[in-house]
């Protein structure tokens, strides 16, 4: 596992495009928890999230040809796949019947999420981090990264100038870097 960290993104993409069977293992080790975190953040359901994560990796594997490095990072491409699968699931009957629908127009703030008993993630870690992050920074990450809003959609949604959305996201990520890295 130690050597997976040394592999460059370019090498990873080349292996993926060549359908090298080793790449699925590397991708899983490197990205599965983050992608699962995104899916689970949206669905808040272990079983459904695991199903979507499996689907996500199969999609990555099957559609490797479609990944275009010119249009973004490999992680960004995978993040989009994971997010779309999760958000599509919130629109299914099964999900709505479970009463877990999240209204994206009033996206649930991560603060509410932290205070909710439903949160079964690394609670202490997240809670401590959220306390350090100002609500507005947690919210902007939520909207841009977890919910997949474009910057213009986020500006409209949060009723903020586009410039503010960008600088606030910048500040939020800088804080994250400081706290986590």
């Amino acid at each position: 596992m130690a050597n997976t960290k040394k592999i460059t993104e370019e090498e990873l993409v080349r292996l993926l495009k060549n359908k090298d069977e080793r790449v699925l293992n590397i991708l899983y080790e490197k990205y599965s928890l983050s992608l699962f975190g995104v899916i689970h953040r949206v669905l808040n359901d272990q079983e459904l999230s695991e199903e979507r994560l499996q689907e996500c990796f199969l999609k990555i594997w099957k559609n490797a040809d479609k990944y275009d490095a010119k249009k973004g990072r490999l992680f960004t491409w995978m993040l989009t796949i994971a997010r779309n699968l999760a958000i599509d699931t919130t629109r299914t009957k099964r999900f709505r019947e479970q009463g877990k629908i999240q209204n994206l127009e009033n996206s649930v703030s991560i603060i509410e999420k932290v205070n909710s008993v439903e949160m079964n993630t690394d609670e202490i870690g997240v809670r401590d981090l959220i306390k350090k992050l100002n609500t507005k920074y947690a919210q902007i990450i939520d909207v841009i990264y977890f919910q997949g809003y474009t910057q213009s959609e986020a500006a409209k949604e949060l009723d903020l100038p586009l410039g503010t959305v960008k600088t606030r996201t910048r500040k939020a990520l800088t804080l994250l870097k400081d706290y986590i890295m």
Binding site: Y31, L33, S34, L35, F36, G37, V38, H40, R41, Q46, F75, N120, T121, D122, G125, V126, L129, I141, Y145, F146, L173, L176, K177, I180, M181
Partner: peptide, 11 residues
């Protein structure tokens, strides 16, 4: 940074 943050949300 974001990947690390997302991991915190993963059971």
């Amino acid at each position: 940074a974001f990947m690390a943050y997302a991991k915190l949300h993963a059971p």
